[in-house]
């Protein structure tokens, strides 16, 4: 499957120790998707270019890689 790099809006929770947890992603058409579960958090390079902190997430039935790159979020998207 081909993936594309898409910068997106993310609603996050920043806890009292400064750690970020993404809760919702907001798609370009304004649609909001809940992140049901975060499966893994680690530093990683992305196959679509760029690197940062990888949050491997379960959104509904799908598993997606969400990256926090310096100061913004991108997702490895299946649609361009």
């Amino acid at each position: 499957m081909k993936f594309f790099k898409k910068y997106i809006k993310v609603i996050t929770v920043c806890d009292e120790y400064g750690s970020l947890t993404p809760v919702y992603i907001i798609w370009h058409n304004g649609e909001k998707y809940k992140i049901d579960r975060i499966l893994e958090v680690r530093k990683a390079a992305s196959k679509v270019g760029g690197c940062g902190i990888l949050y491997r997430c379960r959104i509904g039935k799908n598993e997606r890689n969400l990256f926090y790159e310096i100061n913004r979020w991108f997702i490895e998207s299946t649609t361009p």
């Binding site: 680690r42 530093k43 990683a44 390079a45 992305s46 690197c51």
Partner: peptide
């Protein structure tokens, strides 16, 4: 050598370089 391999692997995985 072990440290070198570990650093090389980490730089590649974490920063793709």
């Amino acid at each position: 050598l072990t440290i070198a391999q570990e650093i090389q692997r980490r730089v590649l995985h974490e920063y793709g370089l």
